[in-house]
Amino acid sequence: MILINCPYCGEREQSEFSNGGEAHVARPKNPEALSDKDWGQYVFYRSNPKGIFYERWVHTHGCRKWFNAVRDTSTDTFLKIYKLDDNRPDISEFKSTLKSPSGEPSVGSGNFAVKK
């Protein structure tokens, strides 16, 4: 189980937290002005990258505070954790830990990587 460093409580097991999906997706200020398609984009569409992902977490079984994180979804490594009112860190701050564009080695099965 991965550990998450809650900015308010410190490192805790992931099961204490709930994930809130992609971060920095602001609710439209004037929903009525949007087309069905654009509104649908806001309600149902979230990016799903393999690699660097800006996401939200809430410390459900702790302080109940929401916060943001940058995580590499190909390794589940947290690259940065920051409070909601902190600025969105620039992507250039992070180096993805991906080994290849998709992460899997060209031989082997995916879970077990062999170094050539």
């Binding site: 080695p105 031989v107 082997g108 099965s109 995916g110 879970n111 077990f112 062999v114 050539k116």
Partner: peptide, 10 residues
């Protein structure tokens, strides 16, 4: 053998 790779250790 290194090219054959190995199966996953689960």
């Amino acid at each position: 053998i290194s090219e054959v790779g190995t199966t996953t250790y689960r």
